[in-house]
Amino acid sequence: MSRKGLWVAAVVVIVSNVFALGRTAANRVGEPEATLDLTERELRQAPRETENTAMGLRLTWIDPAANAQEPGWFDAAKLAEIGFDCSRPVTAENASHYRTQPPRSTYAVLENEGAAWQRYLAAPPAGAERDVLERQSHLVLIDVGHDPWALRVRYPNRRRTVIVPAIAGMAFVNDGKRTPFVRGRVNVTYPMELNVPRHLRPVLESMPPGARSAFNRRFDRPGQPLADAPHYRVTVKWGRSLEPWIESVQATGQTFAP
């Protein structure tokens, strides 16, 4: 083969990158699809590694119905709406049919400090303490669907709700004590981690050593006095392709108490 293959390979590299950068630019043009003010609760710092100098923030959300003893809103009808085959009766005999269905791509609606969060605080899981719940993410999964624009029509508040690409799975629940049922769950939302550009890192890098792990540790030990509030606030925007970028990072002024 002649050396024009070398030029073809170079063109492949350039075209791929132009496509990716063009898509990013198109995503950020015009009005954002959503703008949320999130805190350390919803955007936790990813563990830092010696071999990786990048910094990322992990988007954290909660699904209050995840461990409930009933399907809730993510029932068989919702699962069928996003493409799962729920045509067979939900019985123990059909358990294999439901358990072998692979995860599906969908879109998830996350609501920040909205009605779903207030309901969750008002009726917390048994044994959960309010101050522990307060330190969880206030971003709540409230719906899924295969058409993001239809979801946006249903949830028009762009400052409180965001629609993100997600992967949903199905759980077949049969504990022998009650009628079996299927319940959906969102396994992953994209992106799992938001890249922090270098010019926005100083606030996050200024946090005292151990602050992040202490924040998580206090969350993990209910009942301990919790003196800390989130140390930073992050404004995140989502564009037309439902891909986010970090607009700003600000310190909240909370001092860290060991």
Binding site: G5, L6, P191, L194, N195
Partner: peptide, 22 residues
Amino acid sequence: AIFNMTPTPLILAAWAAFALTV
């Protein structure tokens, strides 16, 4: 990762084109 893009299988197509050409 830098631009928080949603993963797509087009990455495989681009890499395949590069590998086959070289």
